[in-house]
């Protein structure tokens, strides 16, 4: 195609927004925008990771005890699930970029499915720790920080009983925030899957698939750090 004709067809592409001159500029700007957003997310989670660093430095034994009470097998399984969802997401972007239109929605749906498995496991994991906190009585086994927290279940008392509550505050805070990011991501993935199924994307224009992919991979990376830092402290 001559440069002029290529320019003409790109300039009238239905997805080209009025403030941009061509699709390439729009794609670069959109990609940069998502990376800047991710940079912001690094600092958002970063505040929590910094808090974690300080308290782990101050209270290593309490963190070790708390970590032992998390099931590393569940964490391991969930890590593999999330890494697999990153693979399917990358395959979705690849399919859009290489023109294999009919596969894009499928890969995105696979990503959603794997993400949902992750969240389902988390629901079960949280439930185990939260359920004992309800009802009257001794709240044996309650691991939600606060006045119902049962430190005796961890064989801890005195100062360490307080310190381990900070570990669990971080556990719920960090994994909760991470899960919230997945809960927000899944409906967006559904929308993109729907639009790909409608044939909106092509090798020339599939920026939304790329962008949502970047977001999903970032959420995966956060978990890659959460798993060893929360589940694998001290030797097992």
């Amino acid at each position: 195609m001559s440069e002029l004709a290529a320019h003409a067809s790109a300039a009238h592409h239905p997805a080209l927004q009025h403030q941009f001159t061509n699709l390439e500029q729009q794609r670069e700007a959109s990609s940069l925008g998502m990376w800047v957003f991710i940079a912001q997310e690094v600092l958002f989670f970063g505040g929590l990771f910094a808090t974690y660093t300080v308290y782990r430095f101050l209270y290593p034994e309490a963190f070790s005890v708390g970590s032992h009470h998390l099931s590393f097998k569940i964490g391991f399984f969930n890590t593999l699930v999330l890494i697999a969802s990153s693979l399917t997401m990358a395959m979705g972007v690849y399919s859009a970029a290489s023109g294999k239109k009919n596969r894009v929605a499928g890969f995105i749906l696979a990503t959603i499915l794997l993400g949902s498995v992750f969240l389902g496991v988390k629901y079960f994991e949280y439930g185990e720790k939260i359920r004992p906190c309800f009802g009257d009585g001794t709240h044996t086994g309650c691991l939600v920080p606060g006045h119902r927290f049962d430190a005796s279940a961890l064989h801890l008392e005195g100062d360490s009983a307080g310190h381990v509550q900070i570990f669990f505050s971080l556990y719920f805070g960090m994994t909760g925030l991470h899960a919230l990011h997945m809960i927000i991501g899944i409906p967006i993935l559904l929308l993109i899957a729907w639009w790909s199924w409608q044939g909106r994307y092509s090798p020339e224009y599939h920026t939304p698939v790329e962008l949502v992919g970047l977001y999903w991979h970032f959420v995966d990376i956060v978990w890659i750090f959460l798993f060893p830092l929360l589940y694998l402290i001290g030797s097992h």
Partner: peptide
Amino acid sequence: KATLVVLYFMH
């Protein structure tokens, strides 16, 4: 692991 995801999955 994170570096691999950033370099390859995230292009």
